[in-house]
């Protein structure tokens, strides 16, 4: 290798030189150690085996490096390197595009969240709609691989929990209605009593008036379809969530040496049926 070649900064020259040096280094055989007197046969065999393995590995590497040292291959590699900026640009372009698309989607979703709900929807309904249309679908993305069922059940539980919280909030809002109406009614009643000069001077009477009005509003509410629907939704959502949560617990319990609910239920059913059969037989035997 001349000094010019040695000093070259051309990557092709540098790589060729590096490969040649590496080839020489790995190709040089390791000198065999002399056997020491008194070494057992087993010990004698061990270093030879290691050496053979190392030699075999070096041989493979030498072959590989020799192949890599082929000028044609090096040329192809460097032709590839020459187009690297182009590839990088392509990567960057698609990456940026995906990022911008994601940003756009995100800002659209956030924008929807911030926009005023339609007149017929309150904030809770708006959130529920937003959740169902924009977020919920992410929990329904099909999962892949060995853990897919576990992951799906986990996602389902989160989804059901979110729905339950929304339904419960809605139900509590409905329960709040009688209190709001009672407050309004009380204002009007007090106004009337004030006008007629019949305002009670005992605080207990105000309380009685309040509680009776509240009771009336609750009774009206409880018979309304809105209440029944809200109660039904809250109960249904609670049951869905508990069912999904139980599935996760079931998964967790499987890794412990304790029976799961499902296993116990199967057992209970078997015991139940057996007991029933035994009693029937006993009764039949008694009759005979």
């Amino acid at each position: 290798m001349d000094s010019k070649e040695h000093m070259s900064t051309d990557p092709q020259v540098m790589l060729t030189e590096w490969l040649r040096a590496a080839n020489k280094f790995w190709a040089a055989p390791e000198p065999e150690k002399e056997r020491q007197p008194g070494e057992s046969d087993r010990k004698k065999e061990a270093p030879r085996s290691v050496h053979e393995t190392a030699a075999s590995a070096m041989k493979t590497l030498t072959t590989l490096f020799t192949a890599m040292n082929d000028p044609l291959l090096i040329d192809a590699t460097f032709r590839g390197t020459a187009i690297l900026p182009e590839i990088m640009e392509s990567f960057m372009r698609s990456g940026t595009k995906a990022y911008l698309s994601f940003q756009r989607q995100l800002s659209e979703k956030v924008g929807k969240m911030g926009s005023a709900p339609p007149d017929n929807l309150d904030a809770l309904q708006a959130w529920t709609t937003f959740y169902e249309e924009e977020i919920q679908r992410y929990f329904h993305i099909p999962q892949l691989g060995l853990n897919r069922f576990y992951q799906e059940r986990f996602n389902k539980a989160i989804d059901k929990y979110n729905i339950f919280v929304a339904s419960l909030t809605d139900f509590l809002q409905v329960l709040q209605v009688p209190f709001d109406r009672t407050t309004q009614d009380m204002q009007e009643k007090i106004e009337e009593l004030k006008e007629s000069g019949k305002l009670p001077d005992d605080a207990r009477e105000y309380y009685q008036m309040w509680v009776k009005t509240l009771e009336g509003h609750f009774m009206t509410l409880f018979k309304s379809p809105e209440y029944i629907e809200a109660l039904g939704n809250a109960m249904g959502a609670l049951e869905d969530y508990l069912g999904a949560r139980n599935s996760i617990i079931q998964d967790l319990l499987q890794s412990f040496p304790i029976p799961t609910n499902k296993e116990m239920n199967d057992l209970y059913k078997e015991v139940y049926l057996l007991k029933k059969k035994v009693r029937e037989l006993e009764k039949a035997g008694g009759k005979e």
Binding site: F222, K223, I228, L231, G232, M235, G236, E239, L242, G243, N246, N261, N265
Partner: peptide, 19 residues
């Protein structure tokens, strides 16, 4: 009220969930 509420109850789901 109980008679009204029980009409809509999904008792299958309830028992499936709670046992």
């Amino acid at each position: 009220l109980l008679h009204i509420w029980m009409k809509w109850m999904n008792v299958d789901k309830t028992i499936e969930t709670f046992g």
